[in-house]
Amino acid sequence: MKVIEPHIHMIARTTHDYERMARMHTVACCEPAFWAGYDRTSARAFHDYFTHISQFEPKRAAQYHIQHYCWICINPKEANDLSLSREVISFIPEFLAAPTALGIGEIGLNLNTKNEMTIFEEQVELAVKYDQLIWIHTPHLKDKLKGTKMMLDYLKGHGKIKPERICFDHCEEHTIKMIRDAGFWAAMTIYPVTKNSPARVVDAIEIYGIDHMLVDASGDWGPSDPGTLHDAIFEMRKRGHKEPVIETVFYNNPCYFLGQCEKFRLTPDRPREEAWA
């Protein structure tokens, strides 16, 4: 069975992780732009980072026959500095032209501040202007419910947004329904302690069904592991779910969403009308 990792920060992972992912049948991974663990001191640092994830990581992944894609943006944790954020936004179009750039992401909110929301809105406008897919980061812990609602309300009232082309990530039990009811994609992140466990992800799939649902491991430098995505696959097998259903969640669904960008080179095994029937 082929697996696509829709969200992982390979810049923070070792080459050994690529090797492990390849052995676990991961055929593609996607790296949204995010915080570096410290606040960057200039826009130039973002330029270097975007160069890294759009040029170096695809080459490193290719050694293990994994396709590496990226998303470009100013992340919400550093979006409180409006001046710096706008300087970064000014050169995002240059990177959207990269052959492996899938869209704008992971934009969103961190502490739900006014400035974060302003930069979120400005990057949504950029995505509309350049007809880009959007990958959204929802806040952590206590802030998740309110932040998710703030972004959802904005997008629902926007007028030019196509929900089918937007995915909200880091969803949990209290945010999945509102996102999917509005027609957006919902991704669940398996991340020890602060997000979902493999078992809770499979619970949500059982409760809400498989359409418009993605699962990722979001591995970075924190306590995380690319293998947790495959733990969720094993969890579905342990519960007796059929292989075509599992393959749809972990391979076909990412193809259906990411394949809306013509640069994404993998194709689903089945049309989604059949897979979701």
Binding site: G183, I207, Y208, G209, D211, K242
Partner: peptide, 26 residues
């Protein structure tokens, strides 16, 4: 709104007793 109807819940293939056997120790 997308053109696909939301799929119904995915029925767990195992019954409650079997699931309790799997998850009791956890």
């Amino acid at each position: 709104m997308n053109s696909f109807n939301k799929q119904a819940a995915l029925t767990p293939p195992k019954n409650a007793s079997e699931l309790l056997d799997i998850y009791f120790l956890d």
